[in-house]
Design a protein around this nucleic acid. Structure first.
Lengths: 348, 348
DNA sequence: TTGTATGCGTTATCAC
DNA sequence: GTGATAACGCATACAA
């Protein structure tokens, strides 16, 4: 049965509580916040009234009075894979530690959050974190003038602070591993550098190693970051007569799907072609061969973002930004290394 | 550089805009909301002033005035696996369609959200959805008296509306499939029925089929829902001399880890023992044999929850709740069925 | 079409 | 220790 709003038509306010307790609203406010001195006697009277009336303060009124929303905003793209979930968890946890609530906005599939929704979000929070590429630069800068704003794993935008996990170096390490440890000579990168800043950085790491060694850098196989894109990349490779003996993929979904599609065509991994991914999703541990990939401290990143934002909001710090968190290459069998005890049972 | 708060020390308000445009705040409010009639001339004047001053309305003030937060709350446990992410996405999308923002609270690992955080969340939204078991009944009922509250996939609580995906029937179907199609005679359930209402329902479906056929119902192998719990379950089975030829797991993580641990001990799936999971995670499609599991319309569920909540908030509907969404058994190789073209490339 | 005035439910600054 | 009372920034009924 619909029960609410039956007992208290308009909801109890601080006034009704004050009335019921026979005190002023100032006193009620004092006992609620534990601020100022209140006699034990009146204190219990007030608490009693609150209990009886099921009083629940209206956050909006408080926000208006203290001129703070006590909330942080977070804008993410689709929540696919463990990356965004982890980021969100870290963010939420850190926010909660500061008694801040988190307001979440998700961009529609693959696109960017429309300016109107973004503005409305901004109006309800004290600071905002945005995943790179999910909001266009104009809207970004417009909001940045008004409230603390952080871009996560995004491109560098003048006047906007940035936080990210390291990409270029680990991509270079991965690529070098393929060439040096496994003697691969025709590596190719799968992923569109223009789709996101971190994909670009991963490609840059790849490109750098090839150039160092005087290997011609093949055009990346451009496409999205989902399984279907991995299948497509595999088919393009197949159609071109497999012009590669190593494939550095922008993420695990692509790598997994590509590997399977290749296997379906009789191309073996890692025998015929080595494959690597990015993110270390659960499936990377369970497939055979295990997928060599890169693990990012995503949760920590999320926490760091929330804390930084809070610092900005409270004005507790200067502009010491542009932090980059270290990542870790996880070696399994898909690059050609001997498979370590499979699967790696340490759940992420 | 920290740029905000430099240009507009206290932030522009509707008053400063009215001043700058040479009109009253009522007019400003009108052009902002598109309510009432405003001459084109003053309209542009106002829009101009807004632009110049970088005016951004304060949501709290509006909320106070309209007596609505225009926001929905969502309480979830840890965001592991695709289940909660999907739910969240469906919820957010539907909320956005009604121009409602979503504020999210995550319970600390495995525990319940503390009453204080829950109350504070409730104070900032118009309605709340809570995942079953994440908030204790007392707090639940207390809030339910004040605001629309929905429990997702939870136990039935008097006075609290509930929404869920179907569990019992599909669990029964899965179990019957194992017994009838594959001639298994010693099935066992892995998961703790007391850990969550849907696990209980899955066990009930399992139990029902066994009882129907006069098979003694073995105690469930109790444990959590993570990979480590699957490993533990496998080891208990191994230690007991494999008293089962079919294992119905409460979710895919458990099933995957258990299968791998069993394989490590020389027990083959599905040859020696059939295994099934729940949720259809990505890894379920990529392992060999593919994992037979159950797919739930989680995203739709999330959307339904948000819409229902919005109906309650706007008072647009009566108490026609207790909806249950249908699920679908996904047959792959781990139950003993011939593997269909692997993997099933239709990304979820 | 536009302006005035009041209310929304808190917090906080004063007096007492 | 307690109580008036003025913000806080917006929406809106009512006048003009």
């Amino acid at each position: 049965m619909a029960t609410h709003a039956a007992r208290t038509p308009a909801g109890a306010t601080i006034y009704s509580v004050a009335d019921a307790a026979g005190v002023s609203i100032a006193t009620v406010s004092r006992v609620i916040q534990g601020t100022g001195a209140v006699s034990e006697r009146t204190r219990t009277k007030v608490l009693d009234a609150i209990e009886r009336l099921d009083y629940m303060p209206t956050a909006a009124a408080r926000s208006l009075a203290v001129r703070q929303h006590e909330a942080l905003g977070l804008v993410l793209p689709e929540l696919s894979g463990p990356y965004f979930s982890e980021l969100l968890m870290g963010f939420e946890e850190a926010a909660a530690e500061h008694r801040l609530s988190v307001v979440l906005s998700l961009a529609e599939h693959g696109g960017t959050l429309d300016a109107d929704r973004f503005a409305r979000l901004a109006a309800t929070v004290d600071g905002i974190a945005v995943l790179g590429g999910v909001v266009d630069d104009g809207a970004l800068r417009r909001i940045a003038r008004q409230k603390p704003l952080l871009v996560v794993a995004g491109a560098e935008t003048p006047g906007v602070d940035r936080l990210a996990a390291e990409n270029t170096t680990s991509s270079a390490a991965l690529t070098a591993h393929l060439l040096d440890a496994h003697g691969r000579t025709r590596p190719v990168f799968v992923g569109d550098p223009d789709i996101a800043p971190d994909v670009r950085q991963r490609f840059e790491g790849f490109r750098g190693v090839l150039q160092e060694r005087g290997i011609a850098v093949p055009d990346p196989l451009r496409g999205g970051l989902r399984e279907a894109d991995g299948v497509r990349a595999a088919e393009r490779l197949l159609a071109d007569g497999m012009p590669a003996d190593a494939v550095v993929c922008a993420n695990d979904e692509i790598a997994l799907a590509l590997t399977t599609r290749l296997a379906g065509a009789g191309v073996g991994v890692p025998a015929d072609v080595a494959v690597t991914g990015w993110d270390d999703v659960m499936a990377a541990r369970y497939v055979r061969p295990g997928l060599t990939t890169v693990r990012q401290p995503v949760r920590e990143l999320g926490g760091l973002v929330a804390r930084r934002l809070h610092e900005r909001v409270t004005g507790a710090t200067g502009p010491q930004d542009e932090s980059v968190l270290a990542t870790r290459v996880v070696i399994r069998g898909s690059c050609g290394c001997p498979e370590p005890g499979h699967p790696d049972q340490r759940a992420t």
